[in-house]
Simulated assay, not measured.
Amino acid sequence: MTDCGSRYYLTINKRCVKVPVALSSMAGITDASYALLRKENIGIAFIGGFSVDEPTMNAGAKMADEGRHEFICGDPVSCIRDEVKKFEGSDVICGINIRGTSPKSYLDVYSAVGKDVIYEVDAHCRQEAMINAGAGEYLLKNTDTLADIVRALNEAGAYVSVKFRAGVSSNDSSLARLLWKAGADILHVDLMDFGSSKLKEIRNSCPLKIIANNSMNTFERVKEMFSHGADMVSLARNADNETLERLRVSIEEYADESGWYNAPKQLCRGGDLRGLAFCCMPIKQCPLIPALKKTGMSPKKFHDLKVSLAENTPLSSGESTCFGSLVWCCKSSTPCMFRDISLKQAGLSHQEYMRLKRRLSEGIIEKVFDERSEEESC
């Protein structure tokens, strides 16, 4: 059996993710017992949301009185700690979705629970009581507070996710960059009325892990999200074991068949910046040139970067290809006789080729955002 490390190469909080499907939090529903009933088909479970300070606890009580499901705990920190302990011995990574109004609210939970879980800042709840308390979507309109929370958790040593709904902030690209700079590790994005173009916009704005949420209950939808920048998908209302198992099996089969489960579309076909791994030499007017301009990378620098990243790897071979090296070749799903001849000569399968392209993409993206970070700090 193929282990998760060689299938997805996906690590979250220093743990291998066995399947890139997560449970999203649902107030009053998603707890450890709920998650562990689905443990065979998920990689991460975000439990909660948990209200952890006086303003959010009061808001949660009001929402419960109005008929909503809520986790009502007299001592929320102890409640969370007890829930987290139930995941011990499980291969499901636990995340805690937290509703708080200040950095201290989150740090109090972190000091009691420790580093082994993901701390998810709930900037997603749109209930009026929670917004008026200064949590949930309030944080998307008051991003200085949101950034302060993320920064405090990061500096304390926590692995941080931020859950938010696309289109609520005035600019999702700016929000993504802000959260990246503040120290977030994951963006958990409810795409709501948006499709893959919004996901690509966020993907091209930061190098963080991205979990796509909302209506991820068919493999076709999941595959579309993977090809536009998602590292994982998450489910809430449709997270029954039948649906989850169907997704898990389909993703596993696709990963084993393709070699890169969330390979991007090629740039010339609407792909995100990860598709730079499939671009040919920058010698003609095509979507590569404006993409490079947006990254601030010159064509020569891009050329030299790809050559250096391919050095001493099988991608540097391929004399029969259009540009004399597999580093400039397209995605394996695109028919190309010359690429396939070179792969055969190098003894590479399509799956091995795509795994090499994935590593190439990681190197390119790392360089792109390292340089962007330096430019923004100047």
Rank of each mutant, 00 (worst) to 15 (best):
T2Q: 10
C4H: 11
S6P: 00
S6M: 07
R7M: 13
R7V: 11
Y8F: 15
Y9S: 15
L10E: 02
L10V: 05
N13W: 05
R15Q: 15
V17S: 01
S25H: 12
G28K: 06
I29R: 07
S33G: 10
L36D: 04
L36C: 04
L37D: 11
E40T: 04
E40C: 02
E40M: 06
I44S: 02
I47R: 01
G49R: 02
V52M: 06
P55V: 01
T56C: 06
M57A: 09
A59Y: 09
A64E: 13
D65E: 15
R68T: 08
E70A: 14
E83T: 10
K85M: 15
K86P: 01
K86F: 02
D91R: 12
I93C: 03
R99K: 14
V109F: 05
G114K: 12
D116H: 14
V117R: 03
I118L: 14
A123Y: 06
H124M: 10
R126Q: 12
A129V: 03
I131M: 09
N132L: 14
G134R: 01
G136L: 11
G136A: 11
Y138W: 14
Y138L: 03
A147T: 09
A147L: 05
A147F: 03
V150M: 10
V150L: 13
E155K: 14
E155Y: 07
Y159H: 15
Y159S: 11
S161C: 14
G167F: 12
V168H: 04
S170G: 14
D172G: 06
L175R: 01
A176Q: 05
A182M: 07
D190Q: 12
D190C: 10
L199N: 08
I202P: 01
N204G: 04
S205V: 05
L208A: 00
S215R: 14
M216Q: 12
N217E: 10
T218H: 06
K223Y: 15
M225F: 08
S234L: 08
S234E: 07
R237T: 08
N238Q: 13
N238G: 07
D240Y: 08
E242P: 00
L244H: 04
L247W: 03
R248I: 00
V249N: 12
I251L: 06
I251R: 02
I251H: 04
E252Y: 11
E253K: 15
W260R: 04
Y261I: 05
N262G: 07
N262E: 06
A263R: 08
A263Q: 08
P264F: 08
K265M: 10
K265P: 00
Q266R: 09
L267V: 13
G275N: 06
C279S: 13
C279P: 00
P282E: 12
I283E: 08
Q285S: 15
Q285I: 12
C286R: 11
P290R: 13
A291Y: 05
A291M: 11
K293P: 00
K294Y: 10
K294I: 04
T295E: 03
M297F: 08
K301N: 07
H303Y: 12
S308C: 02
N312Y: 14
T313L: 05
L315D: 00
S317A: 13
S320G: 04
T321C: 10
L326M: 15
V327M: 13
W328P: 00
S332Q: 11
C336Q: 06
M337F: 10
R339Q: 10
R339K: 15
I341C: 04
Q345M: 09
R355V: 03
S361M: 09
G363Q: 02
F369N: 01
D370F: 09
E371C: 06
E375T: 09
C378L: 13
